[in-house]
Computed example of a mutant assay.
Amino acid sequence: MGVSMRDVATAASVSVGTVSNVLNSPDKVSPSTVARVQAAIDSLGFVRNDAARQLRAGRSRCVGLVVLDVGNPFFTDIARAAEREAGDHDLTVLLGTSDEDASRESAYVDTFDEQRVFGLMVSPVGDDLGRLDALRRRGTPVVLVDRDATGSPFDSVAVDDIAGGRMAVDHLCGLGRRRIAYVGGPLTLRQVADRRRGAEAAIAAVPGASLEVIETPTLSVLAGRGVGDELQRRRPAERPDAVFCANDLVAMGVLQSFTMMGGSVRVPEDISLIGYDDIDFARSAVVPLSSIRQPTARIGATAVELLLAAASDSPHRHTPSNPVFQPQLVARASTLGAGHQ
């Protein structure tokens, strides 16, 4: 048997209620009594039963966060910022990764629901949000991350990916590139689709420009390397003169393929290359990578702020908030050439 609050109360010669106040509302107890109870806790090795406390309260102090790929530094940075903001409000973030798999996402949502989390932040795989909506209607706050949910009952925080896609291709076309390839996938992912839409809008405004869409199974370095290998097998006249990748991991893979031993493509002389997210590795690549920067710290912190605001309202009276941040072009050597870091 573990040490109970009653054991602590007996050792400190106080009531169980006093021990509870020391643990939860120490300002209600005299400093000398707090010291005596704390000494008994330390001596006995008492560990509070948070699970029981959460059952009584009906909601835990944990927040669930489900991202598409925890191996992507973009989502790691969002999680880190969310942890900092949550910690300022006595909340703990529990992290799960769906690996872009709707069934894994659903399993995490079910698990966090069973744990009675304070709220849930999700970067959804697809457009079927019925399970999340049921959770929201039952009183658990839900915030969509990296997804604009304007016009829906959900709070959300996102970046304008259509603007980001257009920004990337405008940059390439401004450098004189006309045969652009857009690389990423699956194309059903909302972020990938929106960045493609932005790229298509930019191409439509430039006479003589074309856009080739190359779908990848995942947004990974390995998938990008495969595309780079395929482009090198083409005759030079059949290759694009610029590549826009749906994220930096894919772009890093393309760059690895081009620059590995025996690579036949020079960046940016033969093919200009730009990614998306501006992860830390982008600036330290063998050819520093141009990218579209997203404000990850603001995304993570804002998601927690929206969750707290939703938690303070009735789910039937809450008016959702849907901030959309603007991305930023960061141009480096992979498009501008040597001397640009």
Rank of each mutant, 00 (worst) to 15 (best):
A40Y: 05
S152R: 05
A134K: 07
R195A: 05
I299C: 08
A12M: 04
V93Q: 00
F75A: 09
T302E: 10
A251W: 08
T33G: 02
A107T: 07
A205R: 12
P26R: 06
L44M: 08
L94D: 11
T76N: 05
A209P: 12
N72I: 04
I271F: 04
A242L: 00
D127V: 02
F112S: 01
A251S: 07
A158I: 02
P124K: 00
A107G: 06
H340Q: 06
S20I: 10
G263V: 03
P295G: 08
S25F: 09
H340N: 13
A297D: 15
K28N: 15
T319H: 10
R56C: 11
S13V: 12
G263E: 12
L289F: 12
A102K: 09
G139K: 05
L189N: 13
A39I: 05
A158P: 01
I41S: 05
P288F: 06
A82L: 07
L336G: 10
A333P: 04
R131M: 09
V122E: 03
M252D: 02
A309G: 10
D110Q: 12
T319M: 13
G87A: 15
P217D: 13
D241W: 03
V243Y: 00
E238L: 02
E238K: 09
Y276M: 02
L336P: 02
R137A: 11
L23G: 01
R283P: 04
V221T: 07
M5A: 07
L306E: 04
I180H: 03
R53E: 08
S152A: 07
G165Q: 13
R80K: 11
D148F: 04
V192D: 01
E230W: 15
L219M: 15
